[in-house]
Amino acid sequence: MSDRKEWPLWEVFLRSKAGLDHKHCGSLHAADGAMALQMARDVYTRRQEGVSIWVVRADQIVASAPDDKAALFDPMADKIYRHPTFYELPDEVNHM
């Protein structure tokens, strides 16, 4: 059955309410963008989960490789001075 042509894969992102970021919620197959939006609406917002939808062709996403995880993210582990809790201030300046 390898002669069958599949509809391309799309990733779906939902904004659950105004003021919040779009967040990845799942995937689906659709022939084009309009159909992907329609189907995302049917599948992922059946209980008012969203007020706005993005669909992105999965093959258009550029992602970091799992094997690069250490090289990319470990260097930040010892930069604790980037966090506010690194600084011990006198009690008199509380809430800074």
Partner: peptide
């Protein structure tokens, strides 16, 4: 809903490198 559940699960299986077809 059941159709939707099937979709979520097929999509999860596809992340393992197997196609929907």
């Amino acid at each position: 809903d059941e159709g939707g559940h099937g979709l979520y699960l097929y999509a999860a299986a596809e992340t393992l490198g197997v196609s929907r077809d």
